[in-house]
Design a protein around this nucleic acid. Structure first.
Lengths: 195, 195
DNA sequence: ACAATAAGTTTACAGTGTCAACATTTAATG
DNA sequence: CATTAAATGTTGACACTGTAAACTTATTGT
């Protein structure tokens, strides 16, 4: 060991941080606990003092990714306060942008079991206030009230819009669509025509 | 070796077949070339006579999964000949059903790089005739002609519907939606309201 | 018939996740 | 403070992994 202190100081966070870097560089297939440990300048078994096993570290990294994602969507809404329709459109674009620009993040998010989930009960959604859907739902709720949409339809419409954005993001991020142009224009058109 | 013949006979297909079984049972994380080889009753290096490396085998398995998926969608359309609207709705439901019932298939399909892709050029889609989208597009094209939709909008609408189905499938298959009821009803309502 | 090739096997090696035993530092307690 | 417990490191071992090389056996083409 070439550290000057025996204890690392903040190994847990360092493992998550470097783990995310490695994951982005090599992909999940080539991701290795021992490599992350060595990136942190620590022996190959040190991680076990902070995580039960490899999966537990990966899960914490994934949670970190979700936080980044939620933040990216939240930031956009703050650019257009009191304009829920614009917020919806821009969140959709931000969503797709995030997935396209971070393809490894994207794979992780879809591989993992859900960290946030949407609960549907009677005529209400339940979801974490700080989840991406939570943010989206708020804008959607305001917009559909604004245009006096039937309350029955509002929930269905919100879910549909949210699904649509997911679908577009996947198709584009996975390059299942070859489109010789600005994909964000495509996204905007699709959202506008469905809203 | 406990085989009676030195040569296996059809090892390549056996590897793909057993590989798919193993993948479904253990998931991609625990998938191992050596396990597949032993399932086929063959030494751990035999697969290298048929596949360059592990990735190449996995890729061929994924292609197999896509074929199954395409078939599942095609079957449904054949149940409702000359009823394009019904075909669209039922394909959407079949899509989601396939993903929910085969969660490991689902993960594989979204992890892999695209095997089929949709090319958008001018005002036309190009895609493999036997791809899921190819099948979907045919029904969509017929339906939107039937209702005399503006040709400009038809492509956009088709892509939107296809995205929507993807999004719903992901949300439900990943259990990002907790819904205490028949999810296929949910799918049907969402498609109908957007078509 | 026999050489070339295809399709298996065995051996070897570096990398992996994880366990157990040990070492060092920090925190808690008398 | 001194001593002990707990937290956080390290080392060594093990079984398992992917893959390369050298070898063996069967099949095929001339």
């Amino acid at each position: 060991m070439d550290r000057e202190t025996y204890h690392h100081g903040d190994l847990k966070q360092a493992l998550i941080h470097n783990g995310l870097l490695l994951l982005n560089e090599k992909g999940i297939e080539k991701f290795s606990l021992r490599k992350v440990a060595s990136m942190c300048g620590v022996s190959h078994n040190a991680p076990y003092k902070h995580f039960k096993d490899k999966d537990e570290l990966i899960n914490e990294i994934i949670i970190e990714v979700w936080k980044k994602f939620n933040l990216a969507l939240l930031e956009v809404t703050e650019l257009y306060p009191n304009k829920p329709k614009l917020q919806i459109i821009e969140m959709g674009k931000a969503y797709v942008k995030f997935m396209v620009e971070n393809p490894e993040h994207f794979k992780l998010m879809f591989l993992s079991d859900n960290v946030y989930s949407i609960r549907i009960e009677d005529d209400k959604f339940y979801s974490d206030k700080d989840s991406a859907f939570g943010v989206f739902k708020d804008s959607s709720e305001r917009y559909f009230k604004e245009i006096n949409l039937n309350k029955n339809l509002y929930m269905q419409k919100t879910l549909t819009m949210w699904s649509l954005v997911h679908g577009i993001a996947i198709l584009i991020a996975k390059k299942s669509i070859e489109y010789n142009g600005d994909y964000l224009v495509l996204v905007e058109r699709m959202i506008k025509s469905s809203i």
